[in-house]
Write a protein that binds this DNA or RNA. Structure first.
Length: 611
DNA sequence: CAGAAACGGGG
DNA sequence: GTGTACGTTTCTG
């Protein structure tokens, strides 16, 4: 089946991973919930002294202790893996464990259980997985409410399979409210319309008016609008539901009105209700087995605009204006009936169709990122790009046998926030009209620097941060690096060993190699659909590689290193300036430069060697 | 002037 | 829930 989403529930005090997926059949989709009871939560302990630490942990009553070898930023390390019975024991016990005198540090104690499961089993959402297990009798199952769902009790964890991009059923929705007094107030302002649009032939507006329009589904009151919405979502059974600012507005509003009117929002595949989970200071709307993507959050990351209204984003993506009405006067259109009401219906349909079109355009990239990063689409669509890179690296760390660094403490975080790495070299443009212009730029300058200079926290020579040290050359016995070859960053003098290859340079290397392979394949492919998919895949890898340099200076990054960030930009400035100097020697005159490229003019008869 | 609070999107 | 945005602008004391 295609793995769409994942969570865990507790059954008899034991965690049960639930994998939500579907199998595509000719006569429709076959929905599946697979239960895995075999996976257990764990965390690592770095001991001061192995045997003494084991003794202290045993005295705490901990039983499943295991000695383990891992690497910590490239250095061999012996640590203790503590396996627990329930994920919630980890936050409960970790403070006490850290307080033990023989415990130096704790690691990987803050990884959500389902994410750990995906990483450890090598599973990727939006990809095929192979399962062995038996379908259990529904009546015996503790998860009530679901119908037409196959529940499989797994005998062992599933295996990942190579697979193509899955075809998903996508439904977009949008609500309209009658708000005569400023912003909508869910205590008094009723929902008057809910628009729906999808890739399975649906374009509808549910309302209490407008049955002369063919796309309107008329019901008799607001309660029935919401009930109809719930019924339709269940009937269509989309894999994905998308909205615009739907975390904050549409779902929040529907939830409050539904509560007031007594409608059950049991949109979960297992019969559970729409629920809001806290993410920082804001909430996200979530349903079991139905992936909700709020496109507003996605678009804010994807494009750089002054505003991110639906109208603005739509114009930017499609180059055409969306039919728009003034938000504070929608209630007048509703009350007036006649032509004005028809305009409001048109506006409602236009909004939901625009939302759908944005989804169609932008989801393929996010689906690819989901398949690369390996975390659920719901999470990925709400992650900062730095977080996406981090979870990608968490998986790579597991594969490489590296134990992940901890997240920064509050103190470390505020300390990091005060620091800012100097950026790329910028030469302000010379004003005027120029002719005979040549342009030069480096292809993926920063990723190339990371790889060629081996810039990584695990290759950085700590002594070079404190002061000047020599690698090969200064042969006094005190110098531990006297036999090492290293790269030395301009301006700062931070040094990076040439061997072995650092963790992050290796990963970026892999990403770029994979991207080249896909690009080559794309250019050889004739089939336009295949070409398009390969293009999205290589685009996703490019985005990932390009974000990787920036994350060294991202304050919440586990592999944060201001020294790495500064070294990368200093090499970048060095390269661009040297290249410009060289060009000037040949008679070019540079007129503008920014970070990884520059523009120059030339007088055709003065160029010394124009080969 | 520094630190707190508000803001974004939505109707 | 192995959890707790975010960066920027505006207000307030």
């Amino acid at each position: 089946m295609v793995l769409l989403d994942i969570d865990y529930v507790t059954d008899n005090d034991k965690p049960v991973i639930r994998l939500f997926g579907k199998e595509m059949k000719d006569d429709g989709d076959n929905h599946i919930i697979a239960l895995d009871r075999t996976f257990k939560p764990y965390m690592y302990v770095i001991p001061h002294d192995m045997d003494a630490a084991l003794k202290q942990l045993e005295e705490m009553g901990l039983k499943n202790l295991e000695k383990l070898r891992k690497k910590d930023l490239g250095i061999d390390l012996e640590l203790i893996k503590i396996t627990l019975k329930h994920p919630q024991e980890v936050p409960k016990l970790r403070e006490n464990i850290l307080a033990l005198t023989m415990v130096k540090d704790i690691r990987e104690h803050d990884i959500p259980f389902y994410r750990r499961y995906l990483i450890d089993n090598g599973l990727f959402p939006m990809s095929e997985i192979q399962m062995t297990g038996k379908t259990v009798n529904f009546s015996k199952c503790v998860y009530s409410g679901a119908e037409n769902i196959n529940i499989i009790d797994l005998e062992e964890s599933p295996l990942p399979l190579e697979s193509d991009f899955p075809e998903l059923k996508i439904l977009s929705f949008d609500i309209e409210v009658r708000n005569p007094d400023g912003m909508p107030n869910p205590d008094k302002d009723e929902i008057i319309m809910i628009g729906l649009a999808g890739n399975f032939g649906v374009e509808k507006v549910i309302s209490t008016k407008g049955d002369h329009l063919e796309y309107v589904e008329k019901v008799s009151n607001e309660k029935e609008i919401i009930q109809k919405f719930v019924d339709m979502v269940k009937k269509y059974h989309p894999d994905l539901i998308v909205g615009y600012n739907s975390d904050n507005f549409d779902f929040t509003y529907i939830k409050q009105r539904a509560k007031l009117l007594g409608v059950k929002l049991d949109l979960g595949i297992d019969g559970s209700e729409l629920k809001f989970i806290r993410r920082g200071f804001t909430n996200s709307a979530t349903m079991k087995g139905l992936i909700h993507v709020d496109l507003y959050l996605v678009m804010r990351r994807y494009m750089n605009l002054d505003r991110y209204t639906l109208e603005r984003v739509y114009l930017e993506l499609f180059g055409e204006e969306k039919f728009d009405l003034p938000g504070d006067r929608l209630w007048e259109y509703w009350d007036q009936d006649g032509d004005a009401l028809d305009e409001l219906f048109r506006y409602s349909l236009d909004d939901v169709v625009a939302t759908y079109k944005i989804a169609e355009k932008i989801l393929p990239l996010n689906m690819e990122l989901t398949r690369i990063v390996g975390q659920p689409l719901f999470d990925l669509a709400r992650m900062a790009t730095g977080q996406q890179v981090e979870w990608f690296l968490m998986r790579k760390a597991y594969e490489y046998g590296e134990v992940a660094p901890n997240k920064p403490s509050n103190n470390q975080y505020s300390e990091r926030r005060g620091k800012k790495a100097v950026g790329g070299y910028v030469k302000e443009p010379e004003t005027g009209l120029h002719e005979n212009i040549v342009q030069f730029d480096f292809r993926s300058l920063y990723p190339s620097i990371i790889i060629s200079k081996n810039v990584s926290p695990d290759t950085l020579i700590a002594e070079s941060v404190q002061g000047v040290i020599e690698c090969i050359g200064e042969n006094n016995d005190e110098n531990p690096w006297k036999n090492s070859e290293c790269h030395s960053a301009p301006e700062y003098g931070y040094k990076f060993v040439k061997e072995p290859k650092g963790f992050i340079p290796s990963v970026i290397g892999q990403v770029l190699t994979e991207r080249s392979r896909l690009k080559k394949k794309m250019n050889e492919t004739v089939d336009p659909m295949e070409k398009k998919i390969l293009n999205v895949q290589q685009e996703a890898l490019k985005r990932l590689a390009n974000t990787m340099y920036g994350v060294y200076a991202y304050s919440r990054f586990r592999w944060y290193s201001i020294e790495c960030a500064e070294s990368i930009t200093s090499w970048g400035r060095d390269y661009i300036k040297k290249t410009m100097k060289k060009a000037e020697k040949f008679g070019f005159h540079s007129i503008y430069a920014d970070t990884d490229g520059f523009y120059a003019t030339y007088k055709p008869d003065e160029i010394k060697d124009n080969k």
